[in-house]
Structures are given as structure tokens and as C-alpha cells.
Amino acid sequence: MAILADERTRIIVQGITGREAATFTAESLAYGARIVAGVTPGKGGQEVHGVPVYDTVAAALADHPAEATVISVPAPLLKDAALEAIENGLQLVVIVTERIPRRDIAEVLELARERGSRVIGPNSLGVISPGKTRVGMCGGSADAVRRAYTPGPVGVMSRSGGMTTEIASLLTHAGLGQSTCVSVGGDPIVGSTFLELLPLYEADPETRAVVIFGEPGSTMEEALAAHLAAYGSRLPIIAFIAGRFADRMPGVRFGHAAAIVEGGRGSPAAKIAALRQAGVRVADHLRDLPSLVQEAIG
């Protein structure tokens, strides 16, 4: 099994005629993802790598029912595209776009909560259930994805898209496959946090451990730690928190938009302490992740 998406998940791509979207559409198809339609307003009737393009989500879904969408449109157009996806009942909304106005993304996430859509991102490379499907562009070409990701018992959640693949690759090399890997997104406000995704992994019989990759900024790691301290989890959790050096440089942003320590919040040292307190195995070095996972699942 997997979480969020598997080989049956039918996917549409909003913004499919864009250069990046067209590329990941072709590679996702080659990986086995069921991309059934695309949407680009004004380009209805065209095809992208054999996928029919529609002007509206409603028209696309009328011909090709789907559960998930990947949205890769310019930031000023994101709100409308995402609201269209949610209003049309898509259950999984992966947002690749970054630098979206805060007000727009907050409005999208509020509507998603009301309608029960799950949003991954923004600024996410997507979701990948190895050997089954990919919703987004994590890992690049189909061949590269097959090389880095393998099916298995480890869930991965990462605030960095690139590190999602790097961690999968480290695990794969150590003989540890993955159930589902989620690039949760590098923005200050994202649709699904570590804490919100954890119950999905807990409900997935195949998943036997979860690896998280955290960064400075946001309180996603702290929220997870507080929950674990109070309620625990059936799954062992192994974490790596990057950017400890940022504690020495408050107010300077490194990497993602959210990777900034402000007003004493979001400090990597504090995250590590809170996670350890809650029983999470925090790796001192990235290279230690696979052995910690091995230890945890025996």
C-alpha cells in the first residue's frame, strides 16, 4: 500500500502546456502515472504527449474522472487554478508553484479545509509512491526516479524537494525501499504538515518507519514533536534537521522562503531538542539516516 496516491490514482495536470509541466507529464507517464487529462485555459483541444488538454477542470473531469491534480501555473494565476480544482472536487491537490501571495494561498487552504481536499505544497515537487505512481515531478526523469526510489516500508516527508530524492536514494542504496515520499513544500504556509500526514502513514500497513527532513523556520517540526510527546506513534520516526548553522545568523534566509529563524522561532537546535525529547531518533549526520532506520525497524 501507499498513502495519498497509488497506481489507481487518476491525475490531471493544470498548466500542462508549460515547458516544465509538459516535461514532467511525459516522464510521469513513462513511470506509470495515470495522467488522464490536462488543463490550460485557451488551449483546449490540443494534446501534450498524448494527454488531451481542456480549457476548464470541469470539462476535463467530465470526460476523464480523476482524483488528483498537479498545479504548475505562474504564481498570479495559482489561486484561481487551485480554487477551480477544489470546487470541482479533486481530493489531492499538489501545488508546484512557488512565491504565491500569502493571502492567495491562505484562501486556497481555507477552502480546501471546508471541502475536504488535501493540498500538498505550495513549492512542492510532489508525491511519489515508488513503483506505483508519481503526482508531480520529484526525482526528474522516469529512469532517474527508478534509480533513486524503490518500493518498501519507509515513509519520507521532506521540506526540501531535492532532499526528498536524496534521502530516497540513500535509503535505496542501503536496501530500504519507500512506501510514499512527500515533498511537503518549502513555503511558510503549506497545505499538509508532517503532523497532518503522520496519521496516513500510521494507517498504512506497509509503512514501518517514517523519515522526516526538516529545516530552519516554521514550526512544523515542533508541532510534530508536541504531538508525539503527548500521544506517541505506532511508527518509529527518524529525523534529520538541516541548517543548524542558521542559529548563528538569525534573520537571514537560506534556501527556501520559510527557512528563516525569526524572533526565536524556528531554530534548528530547538527543533532537534523537541524531537529528541519526544522520542524521535534525530540523526547527527545525514549519512546516519539509513542505519537509524534499520535499527528502528529491526
Binding site: 526540501s160 524537494g161 531535492g162 532532499m163 518549502g186 538541516a242 541548517g243 542558521a246 534556501g255
Partner: peptide, 16 residues
């Protein structure tokens, strides 16, 4: 070094 989380990881390792 690479962007995002990778650069954070490498920079920590360099200082460590």
C-alpha cells in the same frame, strides 16, 4: 552547492 535543503546540509557538514 545545491539549492534549498542540500545547501543547508552541506554547510552544516562543512562547519562540523
Amino acid at each position: 552547492i545545491g539549492g534549498g535543503g542540500a545547501s543547508l546540509t552541506v554547510f552544516d557538514a562543512v562547519l562540523d
